Amino acid sequence: AELMTLTIVKGAQGFGFTIADSPTGQRVKQILDIQGCPGLCEGDLIVEINQQNVQNLSHTEVVDILKDCPIGSETSLIIHRG
């Protein structure tokens, strides 16, 4: 298992991935745009978004944080894999 830092840019259609609740937090459910989120894999656990720890937040709260990220700006994700 490892922590990885990824930088992704939000496009007009969003980030290009969906998230779902899991017992340990929000996991990447589906990658819709592989080019839009390079390095991200289905099943990755989202630990931080732009230096904000999201592991204890609800699904709705994490979705809102992602929605609030401006289109075209870089967003830093720390994910836990494995």
Results as ranks from 00 to 15, higher is better:
residue 12 A to H: 03
residue 70 P to L: 07
residue 77 L to K: 00
residue 5 T to G: 05
residue 14 G to N: 14
residue 75 T to H: 14
residue 47 V to M: 09
residue 40 L to V: 09
residue 50 N to I: 01
residue 39 G to P: 07
residue 58 S to G: 13
residue 54 V to I: 08
residue 46 I to V: 08
residue 24 T to M: 10
residue 46 I to M: 15
residue 79 I to Q: 00
residue 39 G to N: 10
residue 26 Q to K: 14
residue 36 G to N: 14
residue 25 G to E: 05
residue 26 Q to H: 05
residue 72 G to S: 13
residue 40 L to F: 14
residue 9 V to T: 12
residue 68 D to T: 04
residue 10 K to H: 05
residue 54 V to F: 00
residue 42 E to M: 14
residue 42 E to K: 12
residue 9 V to I: 07
residue 74 E to L: 09
residue 53 N to V: 08
residue 16 G to E: 09
residue 6 L to D: 02
residue 78 I to F: 10
residue 3 L to W: 04
residue 11 G to A: 13
residue 26 Q to V: 11
residue 35 Q to Y: 08
residue 69 C to A: 11
residue 41 C to Q: 12
residue 18 T to V: 11
residue 26 Q to S: 08
residue 25 G to L: 01
residue 19 I to T: 04
residue 28 V to L: 03
residue 72 G to A: 12
residue 72 G to P: 13
residue 16 G to N: 13
residue 65 I to G: 02
residue 16 G to C: 12
residue 57 L to C: 10
residue 30 Q to C: 03
residue 4 M to C: 05
residue 68 D to G: 09
residue 49 I to F: 08
residue 28 V to S: 00
residue 57 L to Q: 08
residue 27 R to V: 14
residue 80 H to K: 02
residue 23 P to A: 07
residue 41 C to V: 14
residue 19 I to V: 13
residue 64 D to Q: 09
residue 39 G to D: 03
residue 50 N to R: 08
residue 16 G to P: 12
residue 18 T to K: 14
residue 44 D to M: 01
residue 20 A to T: 02
residue 49 I to M: 03
residue 55 Q to R: 13
residue 77 L to M: 13
residue 57 L to K: 06
residue 44 D to C: 00
residue 37 C to I: 04
residue 61 E to P: 00
residue 61 E to S: 03
residue 6 L to G: 02
residue 21 D to W: 06
residue 8 I to N: 02
residue 80 H to R: 14
residue 64 D to N: 08
residue 21 D to C: 05
residue 6 L to K: 07
residue 25 G to T: 02
residue 70 P to G: 03
residue 1 A to D: 03
residue 12 A to I: 05
residue 45 L to W: 04
residue 14 G to H: 11
residue 13 Q to M: 06
residue 50 N to C: 00
residue 21 D to Q: 14
residue 79 I to N: 02
residue 16 G to Q: 07
residue 78 I to T: 03
residue 59 H to M: 15
residue 60 T to I: 14
residue 70 P to N: 07
residue 39 G to H: 15
residue 57 L to E: 10
residue 55 Q to S: 04
residue 75 T to W: 04
residue 58 S to P: 04
residue 63 V to C: 03
residue 32 L to S: 14
residue 66 L to V: 03
residue 47 V to Y: 02
residue 52 Q to M: 13
residue 69 C to H: 02
residue 73 S to E: 10
residue 52 Q to T: 11
residue 41 C to N: 12
residue 81 R to A: 07
residue 36 G to T: 14
residue 76 S to C: 13
residue 14 G to Y: 08
residue 57 L to V: 11
residue 34 I to M: 09
residue 65 I to P: 00
residue 45 L to C: 01
residue 64 D to P: 03
residue 50 N to S: 11
residue 32 L to M: 14
residue 10 K to R: 06
residue 49 I to S: 00
residue 78 I to A: 04
residue 45 L to T: 02
residue 39 G to W: 03
residue 44 D to Y: 00
residue 28 V to C: 08
residue 55 Q to V: 11
residue 56 N to Y: 15
residue 26 Q to T: 12
residue 69 C to S: 15
residue 37 C to L: 12
residue 34 I to F: 08
residue 26 Q to M: 14
residue 70 P to S: 12
residue 62 V to T: 11
residue 21 D to Y: 06
residue 2 E to Q: 08
residue 12 A to C: 10
residue 59 H to T: 05
residue 17 F to E: 00
residue 62 V to I: 15
residue 77 L to G: 00
residue 24 T to C: 11
residue 60 T to N: 14
residue 37 C to P: 01
residue 79 I to M: 12
residue 27 R to T: 13
residue 63 V to L: 02
residue 46 I to G: 01
residue 41 C to H: 15
residue 24 T to Y: 11
residue 4 M to W: 06
residue 47 V to G: 04
residue 54 V to M: 07
residue 3 L to H: 14
residue 11 G to D: 13
residue 16 G to T: 10
residue 44 D to T: 00
residue 18 T to N: 12
residue 59 H to S: 10
residue 39 G to T: 11
residue 63 V to A: 12
residue 48 E to R: 06
residue 40 L to W: 00
residue 39 G to V: 01
residue 75 T to L: 10
residue 33 D to A: 10
residue 57 L to T: 05
residue 29 K to W: 12
residue 48 E to P: 00
residue 37 C to G: 02
residue 3 L to N: 14
residue 77 L to T: 05
residue 75 T to R: 06
residue 72 G to T: 04
residue 81 R to D: 01
residue 57 L to Y: 12
residue 20 A to Q: 15
residue 20 A to V: 06
residue 81 R to K: 03
residue 11 G to Q: 05
residue 28 V to W: 01
residue 68 D to Y: 13
residue 65 I to Y: 10
residue 14 G to M: 07
residue 68 D to F: 02
residue 82 G to C: 06
residue 82 G to W: 03
residue 58 S to N: 12
residue 30 Q to M: 15
residue 66 L to W: 01
residue 19 I to L: 12
residue 4 M to E: 06
residue 22 S to H: 15
residue 11 G to P: 14
residue 71 I to Y: 15
residue 74 E to Q: 08
residue 14 G to S: 09
residue 72 G to D: 15
